[in-house]
Computed example of a mutant assay.
Amino acid sequence: MPATFTPMGSPTHNQLVYLVDDDEDDVFLFEQALLSVFPNCKLRHFGNGLVMLELMSVAGNIPQLIFLDLYMPYPDGLEILMNLKINKNWSHIPVIILTGVDDPYRARLAYQMGAQTVIQKPDHYEQLLELLQVVRQYWFTLAYLPSGQS
C-alpha cells in the first residue's frame, strides 16, 4: 500500500520531536522555548545520537521532526544525519541542523546528505522563540509528510 500524506499539524497528530545536542545550557534553553511554542508536543532530548538511533529502532519511537546539533563528540551531527538518511524507515523524517559555528563546508555537506535546513543557533532566547515559531508554522502547519510505510 502506498504511503499516505498527512499534515503534521493535524489535530489528531501528537507531535514527537527529538533534540540531539550535547550542550546542557543549549538544551535547557531549547526545551523551554520549544515547549512554549509547541505546548502539546512530546520532546525527547539525547546527548548522544547513537542513543537516539538505538531508540528509533524500536517500533513507535519515530519522531515527526529532529533537531540535530552539528558539532558533537563522536558521533558528530553529520554521522548521525547519514545514519538517518540511509535508513528507509527514517529517511523521510525532517532533520533541522543546528550549529553555533559558521562553517559553510560542513553546512553544504549537511544539505548534500539530506538535511532539510541548517540553522545558526540564535544568540538570544527571544530569537530562539521566533525561530521555533517559524519552524512550527512550516513543519507542523504547512508541510505534508508521508505517514506509514510504502
Rank of each mutant, 00 (worst) to 15 (best):
Y71C: 13
V27F: 00
V51F: 00
T4V: 12
P39E: 08
L50I: 04
V51M: 08
S36Y: 02
Q15E: 12
E54R: 12
L34D: 04
N14H: 08
F30C: 13
A33N: 08
L29F: 09
A59P: 05
Q15Y: 00
L35V: 03
I62G: 03
I62R: 14
C41T: 12
T4A: 10
Y18E: 10
L65I: 05
P75G: 13
I66F: 00
S36R: 13
N48K: 10
S57R: 14
G60T: 06
D26S: 15
Y74C: 11
L53H: 06
P11Q: 04
F30Q: 11
I66K: 04
D21M: 09
F5E: 14
N40Q: 14
K42I: 11
M52W: 01
D25L: 11
L19A: 09
D22R: 05
M8E: 11
L53C: 07
L16V: 10
A59F: 01
N14P: 00
L29H: 03
H13L: 13
N14F: 02
C41S: 15
V51L: 10
E24N: 11
K42R: 14
P63N: 13
L35Y: 00
A33E: 05
Y18I: 07
G47C: 04
G77R: 03
I66G: 03
G9A: 12
V51C: 03
D21K: 05
D23P: 01
S10H: 15
T12L: 13
V27C: 13
L43V: 05
Y71A: 12
M72E: 05
F46R: 10
Q64Y: 01
Q64K: 08
P63H: 08
P39Y: 05
L50Y: 01
I62C: 12
T4L: 13
N14R: 15
P11D: 04
D26V: 01
G47A: 15
L53S: 07
P73T: 09
D76P: 03
T12M: 08
L19G: 06
Y71R: 15
V51Y: 01
G49S: 08
P11N: 07
G49R: 02
L16G: 03
Y71G: 06
K42G: 07
S10F: 03
I62V: 15
Q64A: 13
M56W: 00
R44F: 04
P7W: 00
L70D: 05
L55V: 09
L53Y: 00
N14M: 10
D76L: 05
L35I: 03
L50T: 08
M72S: 06
